[in-house]
Nucleic acid binder design. Structure first.
Length: 265
DNA sequence: AACCTGCTCAACCGCACGCTG
DNA sequence: GCAGCGTGCGGTTGAGCAGGT
């Protein structure tokens, strides 16, 4: 699938472009989990990848890092995007900070493919009539919303699980992703959000200690993570992490420290 | 069945910013 | 103060897919 760069494009570097192969993903993932990414420009060299550092960084952030949510953006998240976009504009990375497990790229794509059109449509229809009562559109049209409240409502909605799985038409066709909310987790805890811990990780804290197995001994902060569950998709992996850890939802969402004292160390 | 069109999303590109020597 | 380098961000592109005709 990867569209390989013609070898003559840049004979000196011979860097690949295009889609990543599973082998490349595995190389990058295992390297970062073992060594971290203190310097992205050296990551492809050390990991044995014929990619540039930016490409590696992007692949990690948007696809490989633990904690990413891969299901469709739900109505609550959509509202958050709309809310923050109304106040921040196209600051996708800023918006993404309020949506754990989502990347700026994902939000940007969603905006351009869904929300932008809808917003334009609602704005045009607003000229003729008052705002519709549909949640997202009406809230956007009303303009002033409180981002802080929106985040709280997201958390609450996660806890009770959104019932509007098919807020977006295409969601219905995505069985696996729908299972994200509805399936195996008995206590209905959403599978989230390790990226936030990793990206903001306090170097003094060993986040892995709460859930790692004894045989993991490579990366100080990341050991015992994805590589433990090679055959498990990362969403189930996240669930496993939560189920096997002493973190609770508030720890996850609000980024508070895991209660290590109860981790049975 | 074949073709067309629109949509989605992964990835690339270029610019801006911050850090370091 | 300046130049070089690395990183982060936002805009854009294009392959693949799904639905429509």
């Amino acid at each position: 699938m990867a569209k390989t760069v013609k070898s003559g494009d840049n004979p000196k570097q011979r860097q690949r472009k295009g889609f990543w192969s599973p082998e490349e993903d595995e190389k990058l993932r295992s390297f970062i989990l073992s060594h971290g990414h203190s310097c992205w420009t050296t990551v492809p060299i050390k990991a044995g990848l014929q990619r540039n550092g930016k490409s590696c960084r992007l692949r990690w952030i948007n696809y490989l890092r633990p904690g990413l949510k891969r299901n469709m953006i739900n109505a609550e998240e959509e509202e958050i995007i709309l809310t923050f976009h109304s106040s921040l504009g196209n600051k996708w990375s800023q918006i993404a900070k309020h949506l754990p497990g989502r990347t700026d790229n994902e939000i940007k794509n969603y905006w351009h493919s869904h929300l932008k059109k809808r917003l334009l449509k609602s704005q045009s229809s607003q000229n003729a009539t008052t705002v519709s009562s549909s949640s997202s559109e009406s809230l956007v049209a009303c303009g002033k919303r409180n981002p802080e409240n929106m985040v709280s409502s997201l958390v609450i909605s996660f806890q009770r699980l959104p019932e509007n799985k098919s807020s977006s038409p295409s969601q219905e066709s995505n069985d696996n992703d729908n299972n994200y909310y509805s399936s195996s987790a008995p206590d209905e805890i959403p599978r989230l959000f390790f990226s936030e811990w990793l990206s903001s990780s306090d170097p003094h804290i060993d986040y892995s200690s709460g859930f790692q197995d004894s045989h993991h001994n490579q990366a100080p902060n990341l050991e015992g993570t994805v590589s433990d569950y090679e055959d498990v998709d990362r969403f189930h992996y996240n669930e496993m992490m939560i189920n096997n850890s002493n973190w609770n939802l508030n720890d996850v969402v609000f980024g508070s420290q895991p209660q290590k004292s109860e981790a049975g160390e």
